[in-house]
Write a protein that binds this DNA or RNA. Sequence first.
DNA 1: GGTTGTCTTTGCGCCGGCGCAAACAAGGGA
DNA 2: TCCCTTGTTTGCGCCGGCGCAAAGACAACC
Lengths: 232, 232
Amino acid sequence: MTDRNLFSDAITQAHLFSGLGEEEVSRIFGLGRRSVYPSGATIFREGDPAVMCCLVLAGRLKLTKLHEEGKEIIVRYVPAGELAAAAALFAEKKYPVTAQVVDQAEIIGWDHETMKDILLTHPRLAVNMMRVVIERLEELQSRHLELHAERVEQRIARALLRIMEQSGRKTEEGILIDFRLSRRELADYTGTTLYTVSRTLSSWEKQGWIASGRERIVIIDPHALMLFAEKD
Amino acid sequence: MTDRNLFSDAITQAHLFSGLGEEEVSRIFGLGRRSVYPSGATIFREGDPAVMCCLVLAGRLKLTKLHEEGKEIIVRYVPAGELAAAAALFAEKKYPVTAQVVDQAEIIGWDHETMKDILLTHPRLAVNMMRVVIERLEELQSRHLELHAERVEQRIARALLRIMEQSGRKTEEGILIDFRLSRRELADYTGTTLYTVSRTLSSWEKQGWIASGRERIVIIDPHALMLFAEKD
DNA sequence: GGTTGTCTTTGCGCCGGCGCAAACAAGGGA
DNA sequence: TCCCTTGTTTGCGCCGGCGCAAAGACAACC
């Protein structure tokens, strides 16, 4: 069993390839180009012509979007098994975000011609992919609503919980977020400033809900955070 | 020529049906259920089981999302020719938003079984539909960024311009937004309060950039607004 | 025509969160 | 090992925007 199959085993389970045979998936994988990127690498940049649809096989990406003069937001973290840059399906489009590697990552990319062919010959995959995109849309709608309706501290709590669910690793201390995550990044993700994030985390640390260090956060009491996020 | 064909003429041009033959579109239309709703009617409610994908043939919908205790945002206005509730493609899903009729509207709806069949037998339509959803996603990402990075007044300016592009009608006074749009709704769309919107519009009215009345806005000087939205 | 309900305007006071500045902490590289 | 870069904390002052309250404007309906 080659490592290609090894991956498809893991990925086939995912929504994206549900309903497709294993060898079908293998063939589709064969049409893409696989590569490994080091931590910190930029896969593509916002505004560049979109040439490749990417599937993350291992590691993690960070998608960011820039506003005039430096302000940036983190649109999403992309864990292994998920798609980035579905927009690249359409030839004339530009990447709407920048993708950077957080953990060392392995990625498989298809150019639009290829991907469009694949979709037209595997309608099942097209429907699955639509589902993925729609779910992304719904998640973003929810975050958008949070941004309107909730105080900053609640948004930070929710963000921590969301990231914890995606990337938490149980340790004896509590649930560790297993990639470098700075105050600055958390601020860009929640739409606030690094100062406010720092103050907030400090206060939670005093309450014993979390423990944190340089680019490192451990959630000790998720339940307390959850209550805090929900409370009026 | 029946009025069904009349509509397909108008709609076929749209992205959604590009690359499909006219009779093919006709047949697809035939599989859905058409109905007319009066202004103010609710087509579906957030949280209800999603049963129908809707295409707006005429009129306009407003999509809203609720937060605990009354706060609501307007996710989007859906003009004629566009899809609402693509999520309803997937049987177990719930509507993520509430859809209400703004102008009297004619709508064609397909249940998930039907729509999924259509997509699986018309991969071309699936790809087109993906494009529509992806463009929606990108628009929302942009608005999300604006919400982070821009002052309230700039967001209101941008919102007005966006709505003007979609629904502006040229009059001798200026460009009229041709549906009822209250201060409250503009506030829910831009993530602020009706007070702030009112104050802002008043000030612009004094500058001669707009004219407004009860649930009615005319943009006199779009260029001024554009500069204002862009300015640092 | 009068009445009623909804939409809008504007004054006023308050406060959450921003952002500079400055000090401190933690790595990483030579 | 020391230095230098990058991240974090915290004090302090300021202000944009919120939200109540009360009055005015408009539309619709009897």
